[in-house]
């Protein structure tokens, strides 16, 4: 299982980075989102994978990481998901404004900038 998730993280990251380096604004937004998935999964995986651990405190279960999932990476990722949404929204609006302002969708606002 670990290897599958590691590969998945790798593919998402590679896709994200590739799109990040593209010249079109929409590609960059897509890239950021894909990179976001990859990085969130990566942070999440830092708590180590567990199939049937308790996510919520249950009576009589000793409070250690052998019996519960690691809450810390989850809390961090939860924050990251929401912030990621906010950033996507902001970039999208900047993208639209830039398209209307410059008349093209190049990240630098100039077609010849490549």
């Amino acid at each position: 299982m670990e290897i599958v998730l590691a590969c998945a993280i790798g593919v998402l990251t590679a896709c994200g980075v590739w799109l990040l380096l593209r010249p079109r604004t929409y590609q960059v937004i897509m890239g950021l989102s894909l990179l976001g998935y990859g990085v969130n999964l990566f942070i999440f995986s830092m708590g180590r994978l567990a199939l049937d651990s308790e996510p919520v405190l249950a009576p009589g279960v000793p409070t250690d990481l052998a019996h519960y999932t690691d809450p810390m990476p989850q809390a961090l990722v939860l924050t990251a998901i929401v912030i990621g949404f906010a950033m996507t929204a902001l970039f999208l609006v900047v993208l639209l404004a830039q398209r209307g302002f410059f008349g093209n969708d190049h990240v630098d606002g100039r077609e010849d900038a490549e």
């Binding site: 670990e2 590691a6 590969c7 790798g10 896709c15 380096l21 990566f42």
Partner: peptide, 17 residues
């Protein structure tokens, strides 16, 4: 670059997990 980044993060998470 993208492949390096992807492979790198995959390796890192594999090593950590």
């Amino acid at each position: 670059i993208a492949l390096c980044a992807g492979a790198g993060l995959a390796l890192l998470s594999w090593a950590m997990m």
